[in-house]
Design a protein around this nucleic acid. Structure first.
Lengths: 118, 118
DNA sequence: GACGATATAAACCACATGGTTATAGAACTG
DNA sequence: CAGTTCTATAACCATGTGGTTTATATCGTC
């Protein structure tokens, strides 16, 4: 509900590295080095991404000796999906819009007669 | 499918002003000044937001004399929602995790006997 | 053609992002 | 305790973002 959470969630999802990290975490917890391995970037860079994900509440971190395992926290994704659900009507709607346009043109034709301007 | 489209879409959605603009557009086309009216920011600022939305394919623009009416283009939202759908399993899963934890504790208890470390 | 309204563009600013390298800290291993 | 492993922090850099103000282009109206 708080706008800032949606802000942080969508912002976190706007990076392919972070989306890949989330995807990886669906198959289980992972440490920072495990998460960093697939990427051609430095480990601090991955740590930064993890911090972004953590701020958005998309991951939580445990402690296992010197390791800080990450686990997926998907609740914010639900909030994002709920927001998107409000628009479900609008991507089937090309047809509706076409219908609306046709109706409009017909109405104009009925009274205006000669041609459609606009 | 292209990662960059998801990037642009999520990035566009990460701003409350832009989400509000999209919400406004669900009730019909609107010009820049109409869209700018509710906000306490300058009209050029809104134009910039519109450019971001346009780059993400979330709006398209027509021409009506000197006006540039905006209309919602919701397809990218569908792509975003489709991506999120992959995670639907993971926010019902708190229970699963609890189950897993209980099973684990039980197993440890059965063999380890005295106490659960860790 | 001048005016007013609508919209874009340009120049600028403060600040966030995504990356780097280098350093420091924390915890295990010998 | 020394060394190694894992992670975080700091300092830095280039670029992008969100906003401003000012100027410029486009179009209808008078």
């Amino acid at each position: 509900m708080p706008a800032d959470l949606l802000d942080a969630t969508f912002a976190a999802l706007a990076d392919p590295t972070r989306r890949a990290i989330l995807a990886r975490l669906t198959v289980g917890e992972a440490t920072v080095t495990e998460l960093a391995a697939p990427f051609r970037m430095s480990q601090p860079a991955v740590s930064k991404h993890l911090k972004v994900l953590e701020r958005a509440g998309l991951i939580s971190r445990g402690r296992d000796a010197q390791r800080r395992p990450c686990r997926l926290e998907a609740q914010p994704l639900k909030a994002a999906l709920d927001w998107l659900e409000n628009y479900r009507a609008y991507w089937a709607e090309s047809y509706q819009r076409l219908d609306g346009l046709l109706a409009e043109l017909q109405a104009e034709g009925d009274e205006g007669r000669t041609g459609e301007r606009r």
